[in-house]
């Protein structure tokens, strides 16, 4: 269910900004939450945007979650600025609500082939043949299916790690800093 649009990396050497876009209530936040926290949680609608940091080897990666609500459409292109990669999320079935775990062949609205085709079209400017796979993933935030693959695919493309670095990264596996924590640290700064 996730298309990955990869642009030429414009960010600073060490950093990458990844943004997720998509319609209201397709599950963008749940998807990021599954990746960052490793578990599934039902989410309140995102307001404006949210922001997560993820360590990728020596790199800091900012994952931006955006709000799908209509009143925030004006902000999407603003938040896309300087992003190295964008994830376009959609609901594979317009009728069913959620995702691969709920999917039966009958309830599908968009076929695997159509999805892949769109992903290729969106990535016209890069050589698809050099990618390890199509920049298209069908995921489930509920059971975690294919979620990590999406991010690793992006990170590895934009900021390739050596095998050793990757290993080290997975051993640590605690490189996320959640926004709310960051916020409270800030608060105590202010009151000193």
């Amino acid at each position: 269910m996730h298309l990955v649009k990869i642009t030429t990396v414009q960010t600073l050497e060490k950093d990458l900004k990844v943004i997720i876009l998509g319609d209201y209530a397709v599950g963008k936040t749940a998807f990021i939450c599954r990746y960052i926290e490793g578990k599934f949680k039902t989410q309140e609608p995102t307001i404006g945007a949210a922001f997560f940091l993820k360590q990728w080897g020596p790199y800091n990666i900012a994952v931006w979650d955006t709000a799908g609500g209509e009143r925030y459409t004006g902000l999407s292109s603003f938040y896309c600025r300087n992003a190295g990669a964008a994830i376009l999320a959609y609901d594979m079935s317009n009728s069913m609500g959620m995702k691969l775990d709920l999917m039966t062949p009958e309830s599908r609205d968009i076929t695997l082939e159509e999805g892949k085709k769109l992903a290729r079209e969106l990535n016209e400017n890069i050589d698809i043949s050099k990618l390890p796979s199509d920049p298209y993933f069908e995921t489930s935030s509920l059971n975690g299916q294919h979620v990590n693959e999406v991010f690793e695919f992006i990170f590895q493309h934009c900021l390739p790690l050596t095998e050793a670095q990757r290993k080290a990264a997975f051993e640590k596996n605690s490189g996320t800093v959640e926004l709310t924590e960051k916020d409270s640290t800030k608060k105590s700064c202010c009151s000193k």
């Binding site: 307001i47 922001f51 300087n82």
Partner: peptide, 11 residues
């Protein structure tokens, strides 16, 4: 000044 956001929006 670069026209980007480095912090999430305040609600």
């Amino acid at each position: 000044s670069d026209g980007i956001s480095q912090r999430p929006p305040l609600q």
